[in-house]
């Protein structure tokens, strides 16, 4: 146990065993997946059409917004070129599906159906449509386990989007709250502020949303205020997540480090 926890020698053992266990997880996952497929097949025509039109509307909206981002990105690149630093926005992504299996209770772990075979690596950031979900902690050939940002043992380096204030978002063990640690009472934080990843830990990419501040309380006796953040990723509901490969992860590592 000590060796597993402190050192990395048992990684191979874990990987082999987890490949052995994978069929079990798959078997558990199967009926639930079948049920979902069935209920998706049996959706009425009307609701499908409604969903279709809604999605089309949304795609339209997002496309419009994207056009603006394209311009901004181009401008940003140009400015950065002027400053003499390079940054690549194109991160490689892979969609992974959540497996409907329960892992260790009291910890926030999920299992996804992509593993080493798909190039997943330990510590890889995982995001969804809303924001950062967590990072890969264990992996097998075909599946891997992801630690969510809400786990009490997990922390993300973040900054507040409005003013760039840097801090750390620590999991609480509840799946709808994170805490910002060590923010002094006079720090400029407000309810509703967007919190994004700062990329300082070199694990998570910079600028992905983590959550919005839901509550700021000042305890008279405490030097720090208690700031609660609601995660913007749909941690409890999503079925699919995205695995990220940061550009500058392989090869041009020197580039990645001189980003800031």
């Amino acid at each position: 146990m000590f060796i597993d926890y402190r050192q990395d020698h048992l990684k191979v053992v874990r990987e082999v065993l987890s490949t052995l266990v994978y069929p079990v997880q798959l078997a558990v996952n199967m009926p639930i997946k079948l049920g979902r497929n069935l209920s998706e097949t049996l959706v009425s025509r009307k609701s499908l059409m409604e969903e279709n039109s809604r999605l089309r509307e949304q795609a339209h909206l997002l496309n419009t917004r994207l056009q603006r981002f394209d311009v901004i990105e181009a401008e940003n690149l140009r400015l950065r070129a002027l400053l003499g630093s390079t940054i690549n926005f194109q991160d490689k992504v892979l969609i992974a599906e959540l497996m409907a299996v329960e892992l260790e209770p009291f910890r926030h772990l999920i299992e996804i159906n992509k593993g080493r075979r798909d190039g997943v690596f330990e510590g890889q950031p995982v995001v969804d449509g809303g924001g950062i979900v967590g990072q890969v902690v264990h992996m097998g050939q075909f599946s891997s386990k992801v630690l969510l940002i809400t786990d009490p043992n997990h922390a993300v380096p973040v900054q507040i989007n409005r003013n760039g204030l840097r801090t750390i978002a620590v999991g609480t063990g509840q799946n709808n709250a994170l805490l910002l640690e060590h923010l002094p009472n006079n720090a400029d934080v407000k309810t509703g502020d967007l919190v994004v990843s700062s990329g300082l830990g070199q694990k998570f990419p910079r600028g992905y949303p983590v959550g919005t501040i839901s509550e700021v309380t000042h305890e008279p006796g405490d030097p720090f205020s208690k700031v609660t953040v609601i995660p913007s990723a749909r941690l409890a509901q999503n079925r699919e997540v995205l695995l990220l490969w940061l550009s500058g992860e392989e090869g041009n590592h020197a580039d990645g480090e001189t980003k800031d």
Binding site: R14, S18, R107
Partner: peptide, 17 residues
């Protein structure tokens, strides 16, 4: 126990012991 550890994502040896 080791299999259970791997399945659940706990430290290897916890359930085994």
């Amino acid at each position: 126990g080791l299999l259970l550890d791997v399945q659940q994502g706990t430290v290897l040896g916890q359930n085994a012991l």
